[in-house]
Computed example of a mutant assay.
Amino acid sequence: MYADNYHGDNSTFEQNYRCYPVSFIEKAHLEKGDKVIMPPSALDRLAYLQIDYPMLFELINPSTGKLTHCGVLEFIADEGIIYLPYWMMENMLLQEGDIVRVKNASLSKGTYVKLQPHTKDFLDVSNPKAILEKTLRSYSCLTSGDTIMVAYNNKKFYIDIVETKPSSAICIIETDCEVDFAPPLDYKEPEKPVKSTLQNKRSLEVDEEPEKKIPRFSPFTGSGKRLDGKGLAQPVVPISSPVLKQHSPENASGNNGSNVSSTSNGRKSGKLVFGSKTEDASNGKLKTTSKESNQEPPQKEEEPKFQAFTGKKYSLKG
């Protein structure tokens, strides 16, 4: 009855069917894989063509050109009808009762697949790798550009097949396949903290501040002290002061290069004087007096010199 609907040569299976979701025959568990339900006549034709196992097929939407690949689980569908997982119908933009073309395919063993979850919630699962491995056991093949569904804990996670190697469609039955993950579609990189304009302005002002000048060393600018603890007769004049410069030998003129000015007390200006010498009118000697006090400091008493045989006499008689 359906023999006239087969196309191609004697080694190729190709047939048009009307598609419906697997939930129509109470096989909703097939939503977790890529297996389809085909009519018994398809099995007869495949057996006649001696198609090797596992049987893999290429599904094409004639109106849009969308295609994917799948495996087959049973041959119990009504003639002219094929039952597909609903996620597969969504990928191919198929509605209930639309025509889909089915063609047998031979796919190479997969070596690499790159997956991209739609939401980052899938990465929050306790062990996403183990869940993914368990889910892919229900799949026969993967096609680049498809979106598969992973069910876990009453939630449905959709994952895009970004890339497959060595071809755009691979068989994953009994093969070791490297799996890589791309960032989820809703993932956003954390923004780097941006400093406020005020903080940037302050940092620039700090950078532009001139370096503080280091004070230069000036010799003989300290303060003087007397050994007896009394105050100084006159303040110590720094060398760099104009007073010393005026009386310095370099700036002096006249009288063999020396210019000495007398002060009211007879001292030479520009010198540090701790005391002055005055002449004693009585004995004509010079004695040192302090500016603060005119009293002569007490002189030490001279110790008597030793003279031999100058002691007292004593008689033995008593």
Rank of each mutant, 00 (worst) to 15 (best):
H7E: 02
N10E: 07
N16R: 01
S23P: 03
K27Q: 11
K32F: 03
D34W: 01
K35Q: 14
A42M: 05
L43P: 00
D44R: 08
Y53C: 05
F57A: 01
E58Y: 01
L59W: 00
H69D: 01
C70M: 09
C70I: 07
D78R: 13
I82F: 00
W87I: 02
E90D: 11
N91Q: 02
L93E: 14
L93P: 00
D98I: 04
V102E: 00
K109S: 15
T111R: 09
K114N: 08
Q116T: 12
H118G: 06
V125S: 06
S126Q: 13
E133W: 04
S138R: 10
L142I: 03
I148Y: 01
A151N: 06
A151V: 09
A151W: 12
Y152T: 06
N153M: 10
N153R: 12
S167V: 02
T175A: 14
D176R: 09
E178P: 04
V179M: 10
D180M: 07
E189Q: 04
E191L: 13
V194D: 10
T197V: 12
S203Y: 00
S203Q: 13
E205K: 14
E209M: 14
K213L: 15
I214F: 11
T221W: 02
K225I: 15
R226P: 05
Q234K: 13
V237C: 13
P238R: 06
P242F: 05
S248E: 09
G254K: 13
G257T: 05
S258Q: 14
V260S: 14
S262H: 14
N265V: 10
N265H: 13
G266R: 10
K268I: 15
D280M: 05
K287H: 12
T289F: 05
S290C: 11
S290N: 12
P297G: 08
Q299T: 12
P304R: 03
K305I: 07
Q307G: 05
Y314Q: 08
K317M: 08
K317P: 05
